[in-house]
Simulated scan of single mutants.
Amino acid sequence: MDTVDTIVIGAGVVGLAVAAQLSKKQANVLIIDKNAAFGEETSSRNSEVIHAGIYYPQNSLKAQFCVDGKHALYDYCRQRNIPFKQTGKLLVAQNPDEEAYLQQILDKATANGVDDLTWQSHGELKKTYPELSSSAALLSPSTGIIDVHTYMQSLLAEVEQNDGFFVARTRMLTAEKTDKGFIVTLDSQGESIRLFCRYLINSAGLHSETVAKNISGMPARHIPRLHWCRGHYFSYSGKSPFDKLIYPVPEQNAVGLGIHATLDMGGQLRFGPDTEYIDELNYAVADNLKPKFIRQIKRYFPNLSSEKLQPAYSGIRPKLQGSQDSFKDFVIQNEDIHGVSGLINLFGIESPGLTASLSIARHVGEQLDLM
């Protein structure tokens, strides 16, 4: 039976970041993914935003990893020539009630260590962004965008430089716990393969719940239920009236941040995502979503030209938060939680998972004493 040090299940941005981190200390890290290439699910179907860390409850993993990960990600991009833009973001209010919520956001951001937000008055906004409808806004200068595909390519290159490797079209069937590690049975393009590894990382994103259920000795009580939440995006043709990202004030206890305006690396304007809980993986974008998008976008962009708005793509997040639930944090489990030595489970790694990816990777390394 062939042996590797670590098997990382899932070649999304977080799985790749974890593999890159562990490969610095180990000779042979194997990443597997059931798809034909890396990053084909949640990691390639998002807004590509580097978040500042302003929304999340103080001391939550999302807050800690987002703020720390943001700085690490900008540094990584500069060091490895990964395309990014620190565009900044405007979080806009439309009335006094929403302005009061902005103040709460400002206080929360400060508690999280984000101290660069500035208040923008109606007059300032009207002068700088005449197309924007807003009574006031918060400017977040450390928010940005990134070329996620190039970032993932760089992480994989780092793994391969450290003698690790990636195998596509491969899924884990079972993992049997032994005294020294795991015997893992894989289906690789129809061929059954058994490997031994010392460490097993469940970073399967949308499928992490299923993977955990196929690991012997993993207590069922520590496997949370995942909710698949689809978000749709619409593209906008023509020149963007904004050079910053525009976010509306999110609804209280909302599962998303509202339909916001983002830019890609080429300056193309797009809007999304909305939120829709689903029971099966389906990336369709229905035409009848357009009126809802128009209605919500026109709250802050009243001159939106509806004929320039077209369906683009959708993404699906693995949320721990159900449609009626309050905030749910990342869940990252080690032996101290589930009792299985050498196993790390990552559940509910949705936004801000991209921003937090390098920080999450360091945390996993620390959990395994591989830093």
Results as ranks from 00 to 15, higher is better:
A37H: 13
S359Q: 11
L139T: 04
G217S: 04
E40G: 04
T150Q: 13
S47Q: 09
D179Q: 10
V4T: 14
L289V: 13
G181M: 10
V18K: 01
A111D: 14
L343Y: 10
A175V: 12
A356F: 08
E48Q: 06
T42Q: 02
L200C: 00
D107T: 07
S235L: 01
S43L: 06
L106M: 09
D187P: 02
H338Y: 05
P241L: 01
H207V: 13
D116H: 06
E131M: 04
K298S: 05
L155D: 05
V255G: 03
M152W: 00
L125V: 01
S237H: 10
Q153K: 07
K319G: 03
P219Y: 04
D33F: 13
R295P: 10
R80Q: 08
R169Q: 15
D2V: 12
Q296M: 13
M371P: 13
M371L: 14
G272E: 02
K108Y: 01
G272R: 07
R194M: 11
A136C: 15
G113A: 05
C77G: 09
A63Q: 03
M1Q: 12
T275L: 05
S203R: 00
N59C: 04
K290Q: 13
K319A: 10
E251C: 04
L30Y: 08
Y277N: 05
D187H: 09
A19S: 07
Q94I: 05
V167E: 08
T262L: 02
A168R: 05
I297T: 03
A220I: 14
L346S: 13
V159N: 02
D187S: 14
F271L: 06
P241I: 00
V184I: 09
R362D: 15
L90A: 02
S359V: 08
L156W: 05
P141G: 03
L91C: 11
L358M: 07
T6W: 01
K127H: 04
V29E: 01
K319N: 08
L343Q: 02
P224D: 01
I278F: 10
G353R: 09
T174C: 15
V340N: 01
G144W: 11
Y199P: 06
L156S: 05
P96W: 11
H260T: 04
L22E: 06
D115V: 07
E158C: 14
N95C: 14
